[in-house]
Design a protein around this nucleic acid. Sequence first.
DNA 1: TCACTGTTATACAAGTTATAGAACAGACCA
DNA 2: TGGTCTGTTCTATAACTTGTATAACAGTGA
Lengths: 132, 132
Amino acid sequence: MIIEVDPDGDVPIYQQLRDRVVEAIATGALKEGSPLPSTRALATDFGINFHTVNKAYDLLRRQRLLRINRKSGAVVSRDASSGPAEPEFVADWTGRATTLLAEATARGLTRDDILDICRTVLATFGEESEES
Amino acid sequence: MIIEVDPDGDVPIYQQLRDRVVEAIATGALKEGSPLPSTRALATDFGINFHTVNKAYDLLRRQRLLRINRKSGAVVSRDASSGPAEPEFVADWTGRATTLLAEATARGLTRDDILDICRTVLATFGEESEES
DNA sequence: TCACTGTTATACAAGTTATAGAACAGACCA
DNA sequence: TGGTCTGTTCTATAACTTGTATAACAGTGA
């Protein structure tokens, strides 16, 4: 799993990190139980501060995607096959999806354009084998 | 068209405003040529500063969704039927959609759950008549 | 003229982001 | 035991973002 981070982008580094981990879980590159590098190790890898990595891990922990102990470090806590989504999350997600879909529609993508893109992206998820 | 804004939410006010306008364009509540209130009028309506409204309008102008002149004020510059999307936008949008779809997948929504939600949301767009 | 508009400039308080250094305690290994 | 790594917590700082506040200017239209 190769993760890249752009320190000069619009998106905060800690959120880019979070997003890349979420995507890795979706694709199956990271599965329930997969260990993640320690905050300090990952920080030196990327040339960033370990507090920044800590913030990303903390976000993922609060979204129940990571378990973090002093013992086992950071471990993936769920993946695409873990169980049904919480209704609270679904409501929140639907709101965010509405804004994103509205933007595509307003900018000229048709309903079918949009659904094709979604299907294409979703087809890349859950394919079970990615390099580590 | 009734717009609500939450000053205490996680999302900046100017971005909430931008999102609501984008959604109104997608649903058809705002069409090509529809005038928007002046920045100062909208600001006093919401009890916020007119610079905040200005920032939202400026965002929408840079996304080519608004035309703004001293003469005609802020006017919707395109809608769902305006023409094909720019490839640059599609690439950027696909990236953001990937992150959002990954989050849904990681949190337990299935491919069909997700597509159903997208279809449902898209069905509410372009229905041509909304109150003003 | 007068009121309204968009536009621009400056300033300030509060919050966010990223970095930095320090310290503590649990885990692990030699 | 001692040393090292880990997560966790605390403080501090610089840079940037967000939102508010005033002020000023120029074009528009009644």
